[in-house]
């Protein structure tokens, strides 16, 4: 897990919806409406930063970020097809 450097799947991109006034991620199978933290986490998923790097970046930026929350958010985004699965790196 600590080696996992999450990255967006091919065809997925971050965006901003002026209608809902919220960040979103658009990808082949659908759309996920994001809150600010989720947007920041996804923005850090560049395929280079590992999960501990992302957690460190988030704790520096937001109060009360828990590593487990970041990990479960990332796994949820894998399950929805936004991020590449962990095994695949």
């Amino acid at each position: 897990m600590s080696e996992w450097a999450p990255r967006l799947r091919r065809g997925a991109r971050l965006g901003f919806d002026p209608v809902r006034r919220t960040p979103v991620v658009l990808y082949p199978e659908g759309v996920v409406v994001l809150n600010g933290t989720a947007r920041a986490v996804l923005g850090a998923c560049d395929g280079v930063a590992t999960v501990p790097d992302i957690v460190a970046a988030m704790t520096a930026r937001y109060r009360g970020v828990r590593p487990d929350d970041v990990l479960s958010l990332l796994r949820g985004l894998v399950a929805r097809g936004v991020l590449h699965p962990e095994e695949a790196g």
Binding site: G15, D17, V19, R20, V24, L26, V31
Partner: peptide, 8 residues
């Protein structure tokens, strides 16, 4: 559709 909220 976009004005209504459609993104895909």
């Amino acid at each position: 559709a976009r004005e209504l909220g459609v993104l895909q």
